[in-house]
Amino acid sequence: MSEHAHEHSHHITPISTLVKTLLLLGVLMVTTIAWAQIAPSALKDVPPALASLINNLIAMGIAFIKAVAVIMIFMGVKYQSSIVKLYAALGFLWFTLMFIMFADYGTRHWEAVRGWTPGVKQMAMPRADEPYEEGMPPRKDIKIPDEHH
């Protein structure tokens, strides 16, 4: 049939490659754990936002490399046809589309809402309270009860 005229015998991944991959995964695992242990003291003097960025990049970068190693070697995608490679990437690519959500969550606080109250228990995604200006109708302040009432 059309796409597999080339009769290729299946690839057998040598044990040495598998072992090397396992070692790589082990080393990466130890690295990410070790970093998590020393990070709080190592990043003491770094501004929190930057520290958080560094932390995330390191942890997720290592996880990403580990995932690629598993996919490529253990799952054998390296030795598969390009259509399998495409499908192996597809789900991960499509997942990133969900980040469009942050165009919502990241901008909600730009829109101030008059008399905004964050709710009894603090709502997930608050908006800013619009400052009162002359001539605006009086706003209805709602008293926020205490958490432990």
Binding site: T32, A51, M60
Partner: peptide, 24 residues
């Protein structure tokens, strides 16, 4: 089944740092 199992592993590869190591 191996492919399935590796996938389960991959989920954990991301889950572990996110929940246990670095939520900062």
């Amino acid at each position: 089944l191996g492919l399935y199992w590796h996938f389960v592993d991959i989920v954990w590869i991301f889950l572990y740092p996110l929940y246990y190591l670095m939520p900062k």
